[in-house]
Amino acid sequence: MKRRRLALTLRQLRERAGMSAAEAARAVEHDTSWLSRIETSEVRPHPNDVRALLALYGVTGSQAEAVVAVARQAKQRGWWQQYNDVLPDWFVTYLGMESEASVIRSYECQMIPGLLQTEGYARAAIEGVPVPIRATEIERQVALRIDRQTILAADDHPTLRVVLDEGAVRRLVGGVEVMRGQIDRLVQESTRARIQIQLLPFAAGTGFDGSFVMLDFPPLPDPYPDPAEARLVYVDTLAGALYLEEPAQVSAYSAAFEQLAAVALGPRDTRDRLRLIARELV
């Protein structure tokens, strides 16, 4: 997320300075495409280049040093980069953001969210994707999915709110025993602090055609000139991902999530229903 936050900050600071991307790039002896790739977070800028851009935009002193510090952090390798051999580029971006989020809101209409999957469920889900995966990659994908969950093990783990469609729990991924173990995991996790799981039952008569995740980020410490939005929406697709950051887009998904949560079962009723579903598995 630091790379994405940095990119958005540099773009907004340039716009505040009243400069076009072409003008700014020429002023620091680069071409427009170079700056465009930085502002869309396609490349990590060198801290010296960031310092030159900030000086051009009139940002100096402690604010400039705060931005340069974030630029240095953005160049550091994340834990997930050990899985680069099985990670598509678009998901690398998401993992970086997920690891820095303070609140994660997830609506799932098909599958159990990756942060809550058991190893058995994760393996069965990966094996069952419509795009074939080589057998040698499956265990690496499973290990990656389990490693992601370490963010929930920390004392200061993010708040996690999940609205889970009943169809995702009823879908028999990996067989009866795998699903019983997975449902038991959901029940256990839902009793932890700052983790809320709500089941959206079939009887609610409503739903949303498409899973999505909303990520909230803590503000960067002063004196960072942080004009970036503190929330974005992530939508996974078969061949990539969408990152929605425009206020109208974020507002629409925020309202949708809260409406779904309002008609879903509360946490205690959710645990009761999950236990019932587990008993019904044969």
Rank of each mutant, 00 (worst) to 15 (best):
R161E: 15
T60A: 14
Q76H: 07
K75L: 14
I151Q: 03
E100Q: 14
L95E: 02
C109N: 15
D147W: 03
D156F: 01
A143K: 08
V142C: 00
E65P: 01
Q82P: 04
L164Q: 07
G78C: 06
P132S: 13
L144R: 01
A153E: 14
Q76F: 00
T93H: 13
L56F: 10
E137S: 14
G61W: 08
G114I: 00
Q73P: 05
A122P: 05
A154E: 14
E65M: 06
R145P: 03
L95C: 01
E98C: 12
Y57T: 10
V131K: 12
L95R: 04
L87R: 10
A135S: 08
R51F: 03
V162R: 05
H157S: 13
L115I: 10
A122Q: 02
G128K: 04
Q117A: 04
Y57M: 08
V92F: 06
V103G: 05
G58E: 05
L54S: 06
T60G: 11
R77Y: 01
L164C: 10
A153G: 11
E98H: 09
L87M: 14
P88T: 08
E139P: 00
V103R: 13
A101C: 11
I146C: 02
Y121N: 03
E127P: 05
I138H: 03
Q82A: 15
V92I: 12
G128S: 12
V103F: 04
L116W: 00
R105S: 10
E98R: 10
E65I: 03
G114P: 02
S62W: 05
L116Y: 03
I133S: 01
T93Q: 14
E100A: 13
G128E: 05
G61M: 07
E119P: 02
L56V: 11
E127W: 02
N84I: 11
A124E: 06
I133D: 02
L56P: 11
G78P: 06
A124W: 01
L116A: 04
Y94L: 12
G114C: 02
V86A: 08
R105G: 02
A154Q: 14
V59T: 02
R140V: 05
A154F: 00
L56S: 12
V92K: 13
R105M: 08
Y107R: 09
M97H: 12
A125D: 05
D89I: 06
P130K: 10
R161W: 15
P158C: 06
V70N: 01
V68F: 04
Q117G: 02
N84E: 15
P158Q: 05
V67K: 07
Q110P: 04
Q141I: 00
G167V: 13
P158A: 07
V92Y: 05
P132Y: 12
V131Y: 05
V92H: 10
V86Y: 06
V70W: 02
Q73T: 10
E65T: 06
G58L: 04
T60L: 12
A71T: 02
T60I: 07
L160H: 08
R77L: 07
D155Y: 03
T136G: 15
T136D: 15
P113W: 06
A154R: 15
V59R: 00
E166L: 14
V86S: 08
I112A: 03
E119Q: 08
